[in-house]
Design a protein around this nucleic acid. Structure first.
Lengths: 209, 209
DNA sequence: AACAATACCGACCGTATGGTATGTGTCAAT
DNA sequence: ATTGACACATACCATACGGTCGGTATTGTT
């Protein structure tokens, strides 16, 4: 029997399938515990394909972080939380949106780059740099709304829009850790509730939820 | 030359030295990326000693989490934040204390069990269970003060002391992730500031910091 | 002193891992 | 029709890894 190469899954998408596999498996097992063979098996490709697209495993990590930035960036920019006219309402809608997508299996709602950051955070580590860009890049998208809300509500505070934007991401990341520890997504939502209450209090609303 | 076994470091402390090495190295590289040889080298012991004290590498992970609970538990129970008479002041003093010990190299102030949780959070994983016990056990030590403060300040809220205690730990864990991503401890302190402001607002104080 | 238990050493083993070298099928341009 | 670039596949390699094993000091007990 002559060779029957694997071309049932469309040819040319091995790279994407590897990145999707990385996104899911690394969120379950972490970067170091995820082997190249794991990724190839899950993506349905061979090692040759892997190292054709990525020079090293580390290069895949960097690419996975970039892939994460792109896909989640598209998700967020298309989401409806940008609709309200009041910038504070947009912020609260963002947080509600983040809360609403927490559920199902842990690896389905937690953050890839947050997970990888925990493992590889030596200074000047390329994966860490890619993760940092993803996290802080996303945080930066919140700043305009926060600044606008501060102006509109006449807030003169000892905190900055930048710091609050980063804090929202810190709460999200920490919420994921507690949810992972307990194996319970509800714990993540619980912290999101506290964050939403905090933002309301900051802008002078009483803590009605 | 006859054999000259390693007995300059006092005999009998190999286990402790391995746990200390695990505490430091796992916080730098993560659990999976930390090899048994790494630990032995850092602790100045041999593999024989390692597997004499720990049946498997996973068993060391569990023991390291327990060791972490014990040592940090002793640190916290001896700390001076318990002194104030007003329970709210004790809570704020706790958060200030947590803030004050953030500094230096990343691996010196971040949380071992938070780091390990990110990697091994399959259900029924013994390391994850040990990490969860450490995190939620510590959170539980805050509940009495929060409950007392709620009573004293006449707070009837839609949140519980338990959930706020957990939220403080979520913020801490998330603050560590951002600090790791940026390689900057200041980012962790920044989130702690927001958390302190939140607690003040919750208990009716204005956000003076 | 004899003995047993404990703590530790260091060589060794099987396997899994990241990575390489080479080959093969596909497609587009010439 | 030929060529060359690309996207894979297959077989293979060197090493690093977790773990084992037989042995040797040291300590406590009787």
């Amino acid at each position: 029997m002559a060779r029957k190469p694997n071309q049932s899954p469309e040819r040319g998408d091995a790279r994407t399938r590897l990145l999707e596999a990385a996104r899911d498996i690394i969120r379950q097992k972490g970067f170091a515990a995820t082997s190249v063979d794991d990724l190839c098996r899950s993506a349905g490709v061979t090692k040759g394909a892997f190292f054709h697209h990525f020079k090293t495993k580390e290069a895949l990590g960097v690419a996975a972080a970039a892939f994460w930035s792109q896909t989640t960036g598209a998700l967020f920019s298309a989401a409806s939380y940008h609709a309200p006219e009041d910038p504070l309402e947009r912020i609260l809608a963002y947080l509600e949106f983040r809360r609403s997508i927490i559920g199902g299996e842990t690896f389905e709602y937690t953050c890839l780059v947050g997970t990888m950051t925990q493992e590889v955070h030596a200074t000047a580590h390329p994966i860490r740099d890619a993760c940092a860009e993803s996290i802080f890049g996303h945080a930066a998208t919140l700043e305009p709304d926060i600044s606008a809300a501060m102006r509109l509500h006449g807030i003169t505070a000892d905190w900055t829009a930048e710091s609050l934007a980063r804090h929202t991401q810190a709460v999200l990341q920490g919420a994921f850790i507690l949810a992972k520890a307990a194996g319970n997504a509800e714990l993540a939502r619980e912290s999101l509730d506290h964050l939403i209450r905090y933002v309301r209090l900051l802008f002078g609303q009483t803590a009605a939820l």
